[in-house]
């Protein structure tokens, strides 16, 4: 494989939410990088901080209640967290764009889908209306929406089609980075397949880098090259897909694999992770996963394990994972 250039570098990102009942430590020192044309999966459960990371990259977090408590996000040389609001408007849509879980709410119901694709192009590119329209039609056709439906409204499309339109808007200006936050969770499995294939093809054709946020380990296996497993705002395991799936190290990652029924095997019994995620308002001294962990020892409650190398490019945050 040829050497690829670094596109995104997140270092020690910390995000908090200030709430009436205390400070929620949503993201707690997350670092990872992404090359051009690479797909990385971020896996974790509700409240793990996946979406907060995505919205931080987009600078779409509302502050307050959110507070960027530290770290940096560098996208192709620019430090996103230090950019002005005005510059961010140039970056969003042009360099990085995001697709959301629910295509039903991501589109404006009162505007035709064509106009919504055209709008992004008009904002970011110096094109005449006619050319912008031409380009919008092209992009819609690329995602499989016929040009003659340009003047239709979102309500006239099904869920899968709407997600295609959302993807068309996200890709209209050929961003270098696409963040897909649970892009197929609201879709049926046969439609999900079509949308995933579309993202994969676009990545291959346009060399777009993709951050795919999902809770579905099956989708990650199909789509991603690298995986970050995130729990309670921290990366607990990071590595190439083969490392994570075939040499699973962290007890939480193992727990995730033990929790999903496999369609290819007959399991007598699933092995769920006991308990549920701890209250993110309470900062934990030791390992964030300790109270649900099967192999915890005394030191886990007292000291926080570092994310340390367990192999070439494989990192794990656990004292006893081996």
């Amino acid at each position: 494989m040829q050497e690829r250039e670094r596109l995104l570098e997140i270092e020690d990102l910390k995000v908090e939410y200030i709430t009436d009942s205390g400070v929620v430590h949503a993201v707690n020192g997350v670092s990872f990088g992404l090359d051009h044309g690479e797909i990385i999966g971020i896996v974790g459960e509700t409240g793990a901080g996946k979406t907060t990371i995505a919205l931080s990259i987009m600078r779409l977090l509302q502050t307050p209640p959110a507070r960027m408590a530290g770290g940096s996000i560098r996208l192709g040389g620019t430090d996103i967290l230090k950019e002005s609001k005005k510059n961010m408007r140039q970056i969003r849509g042009k360099k990085v764009s995001m697709i959301f879980q629910d295509p039903m709410t991501a589109l404006n119901p009162l505007e035709t889908v064509g106009a919504q694709v055209e709008e992004v192009i008009l904002i970011h590119e110096k094109l005449s209306r006619v050319d912008a329209r031409k380009k919008a039609v092209e992009i819609l056709e690329m995602v499989g929406i016929k040009g003659e439906r340009f003047q239709d409204y979102p309500s006239q499309f099904s869920g899968g089609m709407k997600q295609r339109i959302v993807i068309a808007i996200a890709l209209a200006c050929r961003p270098e980075l696409l963040i897909a936050d649970e892009p197929t969770t609201a879709l049926d499995v046969t439609i999900q397949n079509q949308v995933l294939a579309l993202i994969r093809n676009l990545k291959n054709e346009l060399n777009t880098s993709v951050i795919l946020i999902t809770h579905d380990l099956g989708i990650v296996a199909e789509m991603c090259e690298k995986v970050a497993v995130i729990y309670a705002g921290e990366i607990v395991e990071f590595g190439e897909i083969a490392q994570i799936y075939d040499h699973t190290l962290h007890p939480y990652t193992r727990g995730l694999f033990g929790s999903i029924p496999n369609i290819n095997a007959t399991a007598d019994r699933l092995q769920p992770i006991p308990g549920s995620m701890h209250d993110p308002r309470i900062e934990k001294k030791g390992c964030v996963f300790a109270d649900r962990c099967a192999i915890r020892q005394e030191c886990c409650e007292k000291e926080k394990p570092e994310l340390s190398a367990a192999g070439e490019g494989h990192y794990v945050r656990c004292f006893f994972a081996s």
């Binding site: 995933l196 099956g218 496999n262 369609i263």
Partner: peptide, 10 residues
Amino acid sequence: LLSAVPVADI
């Protein structure tokens, strides 16, 4: 339907 299910096995 069966073929469309993503499987958590690389």
